[in-house]
């Protein structure tokens, strides 16, 4: 059952990601990104991370994608012009990606015994478990994220507003 669901949604995820790259209109790409995000959420769920799955749907498929689509519509972006691309990207990029994929796949396959498998469906992550990690063990990273967001906002203001 798990395997079937995994195969369906992993395939959907990959198809969405490929479609994202090959579509020429940004709005089509953005819509395929929603497919990617949602199928990733199902994959998280299959791994037993139900909170992450829901957060993925609410935050990524919901909030962030709405923002993407709004921006695309506000800027009134039209279809991209097709270029020939750089030769280096074809000559070095594609073999590089294939080599990386081959290395990763061979390592993961050779290590399947050592890495073991996770037991699913036996426990639920409760709110108190989550908050213990978020507000105790990882309190400092959690707080420091606010500085990161502040920098991003500041940068958006500086780069987007006109000089006068």
């Amino acid at each position: 059952m798990h395997l079937v669901l995994f195969l369906i949604f992993a395939g959907l995820c990959l198809a969405g990601a490929l479609n994202l790259l090959f579509q020429r209109h940004p709005i089509n790409s953005a819509l395929s990104l929603i497919v990617v995000m949602t199928s990733l959420a199902v994959l998280y769920l299959l791994l037993g991370a139900e909170f992450l799955a829901l957060a993925q749907i609410i935050v990524y498929s919901g909030a962030i994608m709405v923002l993407f689509v709004f921006v695309i519509m506000l800027l009134n972006v039209s279809a991209e012009e097709r270029t020939h691309g750089s030769r280096i990207a074809y000559l070095a990029g594609i073999p590089g990606v294939l080599a990386l994929f081959a290395i990763l796949a061979s390592i993961f396959l050779s290590l399947t015994k050592n890495l073991g498998s996770a037991q699913l469906g036996e426990f639920l992550v409760t709110t108190s478990d989550l908050s213990r990690v978020l507000f105790r063990d990882l309190l400092l990273p959690f707080e420091v994220t606010s500085v990161l967001i502040l920098v991003a906002i500041l940068g958006a203001v500086v780069l987007a507003r006109k000089e006068h």
């Binding site: 400092l140 990273p141 420091v144 994220t145 990161l148 500041l154 940068g155 500086v158």
Partner: peptide, 24 residues
């Protein structure tokens, strides 16, 4: 903690990306 390293790295990188484009 590598998570902390990553956040620090992002803070410093994003600020320097913006600072690099300051002569608008």
């Amino acid at each position: 903690e590598l998570l902390m390293v990553f956040l620090g790295l992002e803070i410093s990188s994003i600020s320097t990306y913006i600072l690099a484009g300051y002569r608008k």
